[in-house]
Simulated assay, not measured.
Amino acid sequence: MVTMRIVVTGASGLIGSALVPALHGDGHTVTTLVRRTPRTGGEIQWDPAAGRLDPAALAGTDAVVHLAGAGIGDRRWTDDYKRLLRDSRIAGTDLLARTLATLTPPPQAFLSGSAVGWYGTSAGGDAGPLDENAPAGAGFLARLVEDWEAAATPAREAGIRVVTLRTGVVLSRHGGSLGRQLPLFRLGLGGRLGSGRQWLSWISCTDHVAALRLLLADDSVAGPVNLVAPEPVTNAAFTAALASALHRPAFAAVPRLALRAALGEFADEGVLASQRLAPAVLTAAGFRFTHPDIDTALRAILTDGA
């Protein structure tokens, strides 16, 4: 295996905190970008909002994995929070892409965060799963993701291999949507959201990290990549699988109106969005999922902490 110097943003997040030790285990040298004052020699300070990032600090970088951004479902969507969601993604991506484009030589790869929100709130469904060739959908998230991916253009124009990581719902007991649901389901208070018929395109955190490692190494892959498992499920099926894995009932149902009252616009564009997607690029690249189906994934997550 060829070892690289890899720069990671969002290293303290759900995915980043699993990715960094995996990259160290592969023998790579990992440097993280942080907004606070650096505490170790392996950290570089940057300020995306102010457009501050020293190009000299990135000299010799072989690849960048950009995962930073405010959590889509962390808070109720207000106008201010929607502005933060956009700014925290687009400003950081633009700053990184423009900075990397000035380096000589430039990095070989820029893996830039993205999301399945690209496809809108009603993607796939009975017509079958959509692959990476599907056009952008409508709505706030779709527009955000379209602009987010476009912000990586300076790196692409500089000849850097750019991969946009269209990430589905990442399953881990350490956080994310599953981490928020587990306490309720363990109490037997879990249930479907809305009708439960909406499709969920998910991926285990273990497979997400493994996919990033493949995308760093495989220089034949560029452009959008759906980071989702090959077997999406409906919300009702996910609810039943999680309840079964925990040996708990899940008879509750949260009505659409209640979700809208609690979550605002995020209810329709997040938890009630229906997205049935396929990992076509990963499959073509030979990626083998450790957790291809929801039952296998939940068993591993709940027993091994995957």
Rank of each mutant, 00 (worst) to 15 (best):
S274P: 13
D26M: 08
P292Y: 05
E157A: 14
R213W: 14
D131E: 11
L257E: 13
A22M: 06
R98Y: 11
L53E: 02
T283D: 14
A109K: 01
D147T: 03
A138I: 12
T32G: 09
T239C: 07
L23R: 12
R186I: 01
L215T: 01
A142Y: 05
F110H: 03
A91T: 06
D131W: 13
V65C: 04
D94C: 10
H174A: 15
G42F: 11
A11V: 03
G188F: 06
L212M: 05
W46Y: 07
L263C: 13
E231R: 06
N235P: 06
I294F: 09
V116H: 01
A18G: 10
V7H: 02
G264E: 13
A115Y: 10
F110T: 00
L302Q: 08
G120F: 04
V169M: 14
A142Q: 01
G188W: 09
A57W: 05
P55N: 13
V281E: 13
R299K: 14
G175R: 06
A280V: 12
D47T: 08
G51R: 05
D218V: 09
P232C: 10
G264S: 03
H24C: 06
G60T: 03
A97K: 10
L84T: 15
T290H: 14
L53M: 08
A241T: 13
F238S: 07
D47Y: 00
P230M: 09
T3W: 11
H28A: 11
R161Q: 07
V271K: 13
L187C: 14
T99I: 09
R197L: 13
W199R: 02
L182C: 03
G16N: 06
I15M: 13
L171G: 04
R98M: 08
G194Y: 03
A300Y: 09
V64D: 01
T61D: 03
T121C: 14
M1E: 09
D126A: 14
A267F: 10
G176V: 07
V209D: 00
G196T: 03
E146T: 04
R86C: 08
R76S: 10
Q198F: 06
G223T: 12
L58P: 00
N226C: 12
D79A: 14
W77R: 08
V116C: 12
A18H: 13
L67Q: 00
R36K: 08
